[in-house]
Structure formats: structure tokens, C-alpha cells
């Protein structure tokens, strides 16, 4: 279980550019939840994921994962429990390294890295077994540098890497935004499959309202660094894009004087 308690993150504090990316946000996510997160540019979607992942720390508030306080634990030290897929397909893998080396790196997430050989024959077999169901033929290209793979292939690979070692939490930061629609659809399918197979608790940021509605069991809409809408269960199943936009307009209209810039962007 992940919980954020009154979390705030401010950038450029004390300057004219001071901006709250996340403001007094509190939320709890249950084990097994698949939450989609939407919101306008600057609403704080990526900031929340970055706070949870430890890319930076909040000025205020507390973040706990499975009962332990992770608010100020360095990024690399919480990576054993939190795995990620990024928007930019270049970011998810080390492009100068072989496909199997990337998988081996992910396979050692959270384990002590010593002077043992970086990849074993047994792991190689395991990787082939895991790559085959992706249907991309990657199992035959273990010693290809990931820099030579396509964006979709890389995102699929990063997803597979993220599923290793049974993480407590999977963070997807607009991981299909840089792909063409066809590929994006395939990667989303794969996402659902991997999440279901491994029963991963997932937060997926997207700017596609249709995807936000179609995937997951809970939908959160952010505005000005806080939660504007939180829809789950039956209500989410029957949600439509038109309805979502209407509710967004209704709710945010009340705050228009505060957030005019954000809403018009």
C-alpha cells in the first residue's frame, strides 16, 4: 500500500518563478490497484511519480510504501520496490549495452552487486522465456545494443524489466506518448498483460482520456498539484470521455480565478 500524506513540492522557491508542482496532496493506493492519472500540462502528474520514485524529495509531507517511510530514501535505494517506465523510450534502457545486459541489470535490482559475472547462462534462458511471449522476436537478439531497437521494442523491454523481482509498485510516466498510435496500443495491451500476470500495483500517467478510462480500476484527475477527481469501481467502468470533460469543466470552473493559466493551456 502506498500513501501520500499532505505532500508538497515547490520549484524555484522564493523567486518570481516559484511554482507548486504538488500542493498538500494526500492519497492512498491499495495493493493491486491500477490507477490512471490524467491532468493538463503542469497539473503535477509527473511530479507525483518523481516524488514517489525519489527523483526529488518533497518539501512537506510524508510518503509511505507498505508501512515504511520512504519520503527521503534515495532513488536508487527504493528502486528495489518501485520500478518505472518512462515517456522517452531512450531513458528506459542503457543504449550502449546489449539487450541481455539490460535485462540482467534489471534482474539485479535491489540485490547486492558484487564481483560475480554480470549475467549467467541460467538467466539467459530465463530471459529468452520471458521475451518470447512479447512476440517481437527479441529473444533472438540478446546481443544487440538496445540503442538499435525501435521505440516500441524498447518500451516493451523496459516494461519486462520493470516486472522483474516483484516490485511493490509500477510507475508508468506517459510511457506510450512517444509512440505511434498502433505501437502505443500494443504497448498498452502488453502493459495490462504484465500488470495482471504479476499482480502489480500500478500508477499510470497518461494524457489520453480514453486510455485513462479504458485501463485500470481507478482514475485520478489532477489540477494545480492536487487531486480534482477520484473515480473508481463501478462509477469508473461506466465513465465516458464526454462525462469526464464535463466534470472537469464543472469542478475546475470554480477555481478558474486561481488557475486560469493552467486551464487554458
Amino acid at each position: 500500500m502506498l500513501s501520500l500524506n499532505n505532500v508538497s513540492k515547490v520549484f524555484d522557491a522564493g523567486t518570481v518563478n516559484e511554482k507548486y508542482a504538488v500542493k498538500n496532496l494526500s492519497a492512498t493506493f491499495a495493493k493491486g490497484d491500477f490507477v490512471t492519472i490524467i491532468g493538463a500540462n503542469g497539473a503535477g502528474k509527473s511530479s507525483i511519480l518523481n516524488l514517489i520514485a525519489g527523483v526529488y524529495f518533497p518539501e512537506e509531507g510524508k510518503i509511505t510504501l507498505d508501512g515504511s517511510d520512504i519520503t527521503r530514501i534515495p532513488e536508487f535505494r527504493r528502486a528495489d520496490r518501485i520500478s518505472r517506465v518512462f515517456q522517452d523510450p531512450m531513458v528506459g534502457t542503457a543504449s550502449d549495452m546489449w539487450l541481455e545486459e539490460n535485462l540482467a541489470l534489471a534482474y539485479r535490482r535491489g540485490k547486492r552487486r558484487g564481483l560475480r559475472w554480470g549475467i549467467t547462462e541460467k538467466e539467459r534462458e530465463f530471459f529468452i522465456e520471458k521475451l518470447r511471449p512479447l512476440g517481437l522476436g527479441l529473444e533472438k537478439r540478446l546481443s544487440v545494443k538496445t540503442g538499435l531497437l525501435s521505440g516500441g521494442q524498447r518500451q516493451a523491454l523496459t516494461l519486462l524489466m520493470a516486472s522483474f523481482n516483484n516490485p511493490s509498485l509500477l510507475l508508468l510516466d506517459e510511457h506510450t506518448a512517444a509512440l505511434d498510435p498502433g505501437t502505443a496500443g500494443k504497448v498498452l495491451e502488453l502493459t495490462e498483460q504484465i500488470v495482471a500476470e504479476n499482480e502489480l500495483t500500478t500508477l499510470m500517467v497518461t494524457h489520453n482520456m480514453k486510455d485513462a478510462i479504458a485501463y485500470g480500476n481507478r482514475l485520478i484527475m489532477l489540477s494545480a498539484g492536487n487531486i480534482l477527481l477520484d473515480i473508481s469501481g463501478e462509477e469508473k467502468q461506466h465513465l465516458t470521455v464526454a462525462e469526464l470533460m464535463q466534470r472537469f469543466a464543472d469542478l475546475s470552473g470554480e477555481e478558474l480565478d486561481n488557475d486560469e493559466l493552467l486551464l487554458t493551456s
Partner: peptide
Amino acid sequence: FGTEIGCSIRATGSNEKMARAQGINT
């Protein structure tokens, strides 16, 4: 550079963000 530590150094040089996301102390 074929060992686990060596591979993590190579990952750090190739893609620091990825390395940290894989739990590497860059």
C-alpha cells in the same frame, strides 16, 4: 567490466537515469 559492479558502472555511463531506476548507486 563484465562483473555485476562493472556492468553497473557501464550502465551509469550509458544512461544514468536508467541506472538509478535499476537500483544502481551511480
